[in-house]
């Protein structure tokens, strides 16, 4: 695991690591860095699609509930108006759409990120506490096919890191 002092050096190092053929790589930073997920070879997330589906389910769920309640479970004739007076059902349908989509966005994000996760090996590095302040870390994981303790360490040393450490599992 290598420590850097600025987002620029981290992104440059991550690019070089990817070009060197490492795959099981992760980078840690105190701020979101737009360029970084490409640099570590991460493809786009499927979260937006999940949110779309969540919203659609919420909306159809809301409307179906109103339909079922108003026309089937508890039909109430108010001044001869139709039982399925759909324009009056739109506000609740809309709110349910938003609710479904928002819940999917938040819990989908946590789920894809595998959070909550109380333990992770990176926390074994005492300097890692700085990852939430002003330091940037690049981690090549031991599961990588190219991983070799000495060679990988030497490679990380070439990237202009502030410090390189080995983190126990």
């Amino acid at each position: 695991m290598a420590e850097f002092e600025s987002p620029t050096t981290l992104v440059a190092a991550a690019n070089k690591t990817r070009e060197a053929g490492y795959v099981d790589v992760d980078a840690y930073s105190p701020i979101p860095i737009e360029e970084l997920h490409h640099a570590i070879g991460f493809k786009n997330t499927k979260l937006p699609l999940m949110v779309l589906i969540g919203g659609l389910l919420g909306g159809t769920g809301g409307f179906s509930l109103e339909y079922w309640v108003s026309a089937i479970a508890y039909p109430l004739n108010v001044g001869g108006k139709p039982l399925v007076s759909w324009p009056m059902f739109i506000p609740v349908t809309f709110e349910c759409t938003i609710l479904g989509a928002a819940l999917t966005a938040v819990f989908g994000m946590f789920m894809l990120n595998k959070l909550p996760q109380p333990y992770h090996p990176v926390f074994n590095n005492p300097r890692f506490a700085m990852a939430s302040r002003n330091r940037f870390f690049l981690c090549i994981e031991a599961t990588d096919q190219q991983f070799d303790l000495d060679k990988t360490r030497a490679f990380l040393d070439t990237l202009g890191a502030h410090e390189v450490t080995t983190v126990a599992e």
């Binding site: 980078a27 930073s29 997920h37 979260l47």
Partner: peptide
């Protein structure tokens, strides 16, 4: 932990 994948999502 501020992972780049996490940040992206």
């Amino acid at each position: 932990r501020g992972s780049a994948r996490h940040w992206h999502r």
